[in-house]
Design a protein around this nucleic acid. Structure first.
Lengths: 215, 215
DNA sequence: CTTGTAATCGGAGTGCGCTCCGGTTAGTGT
DNA sequence: ACACTAACCGGAGCGCACTCCGATTACAAG
């Protein structure tokens, strides 16, 4: 199945494409030059996106702008999708703080079903707000979305809420995937272009779906 | 620079990646050499897949094996994803005949809700049966699945059934997308590898999703 | 300071999807 | 038969993601 190389090192600095959470006890501190280059890469990428748009964000261009080699970028970020996810990291952490420890109904304190609804709405808003970047990230590599740190966190969060909300029997893991699936930027892009649907339509549709299956 | 592009051509023979349905005959019949080359391409592609797997199905290799140029492949099939979808065309047409005109509960005659369930199960079976090819097609280009003919047909079919099954109010177009989303080969691949889920788990999960409102 | 070594760096190289456009061929009017 | 045109063909070439591996450098032990 997975005929991969023996040791394509699990990128020591950033395990997945993106650090999913606070990430307990780091073992190996980053070397000084590595940290400096990471900042250079991220800054260069941001600059290019701001100036020319995501479309022009090629790895070679980022390397040139940052004044380092492309190999370094792949060492730190895995692939182009990982680089783009890293660009979204700051917003993602804010978002995670909000639904993990913020005020209700998004944060703890509200009924689980209400939190699910608030979470899906907030996620829809987030996708809408950073549509270009997220779409580019999902388009960059085939399974990029599912392999990303944020997806794992969102899925885990939903599983927790759904387990609290529902009697056992239904598979919360599947339901979580099914609720997240419509919030793919790739699908939303298609819905917008081919059917003229808006983000509001998606949110309303998700409400219908929730009333349908959980109501 | 007078690079006039009179027709970024809607491929006359097969519009889009794949002919969605019988396709009312309005277009000119295919030229003899074009038809011959199409067969050559499809045969060569099948041969390569059978011999080396989908992974080795590069466009250049198909062109070489078929004894034609790569430009011809792109003219007929649009892109690599279109070529792979064309490989699935025969099975797809059988499937479409089954749910459009076959025996119940998949075909006409059963209650709309029962047909929705039968359709989703049949589609899950289909994805499972041709997993490698479908996964490769969806992975080949970013939005390949949504742009494909089969997806449009499946979506339209579901919208019809859902409209019959439910009073107005809910957006049937969104619901159709939401029900099709979990049957993405990309997602199922992730569920299998990362969570150990099987195709049966997906079918059961879809049933759970349907059960509440449709008893 | 010197040496050892493991992590890091960089950029030429590779593979592959896709485009471009001059040459060729099939089908039609005369 | 013959010219004419629109569709078709092919393969060199391009852009870009990603890999490879020898040179380099940070850091610690002696």
């Amino acid at each position: 199945m997975d005929s991969r190389r023996p040791a394509p090192p699990p990128p020591s600095g950033a395990p997945g494409p993106l650090t999913p959470l606070p990430l307990a006890g780091r073992t190996a501190p980053e070397r000084a030059d590595a940290a400096r280059n990471r900042r250079r890469i991220l800054d260069a990428a941001s600059r290019i996106v701001a100036r020319h748009g995501v479309r022009e964000l090629t790895v070679d261009l980022v390397a040139g702008e940052a004044g380092i080699g492309v190999g370094t970028i792949y060492r730190r970020f895995g692939d182009r999708a990982g680089l783009i996810f890293a660009l979204l990291d700051e917003h993602e952490h804010r978002f995670q703080r909000d639904f993990l420890a913020g005020p209700p109904p998004l944060g703890p304190g509200a009924e689980p079903v209400a939190r699910v609804r608030a979470f899906l709405h907030a996620l829809a808003d987030r996708v809408t707000a950073q549509f270009e970047l997220i779409l580019a990230a999902e388009s960059s590599a085939p399974g990029a979305r599912y392999r990303s740190g944020p997806y794992a966190v969102h899925h885990t969060h939903l599983v927790t809420l759904l387990t609290q909300a529902r009697p056992p029997g239904a598979d919360a893991r599947f339901l979580a995937d099914a609720l997240l699936a419509p919030l793919s930027a790739l699908l939303m892009d298609h819905q917008r272009k081919a059917r003229g649907m808006t983000a509001q339509d998606v949110k309303t549709g998700l409400d219908d779906l929730l009333r349908w299956s959980l109501g």
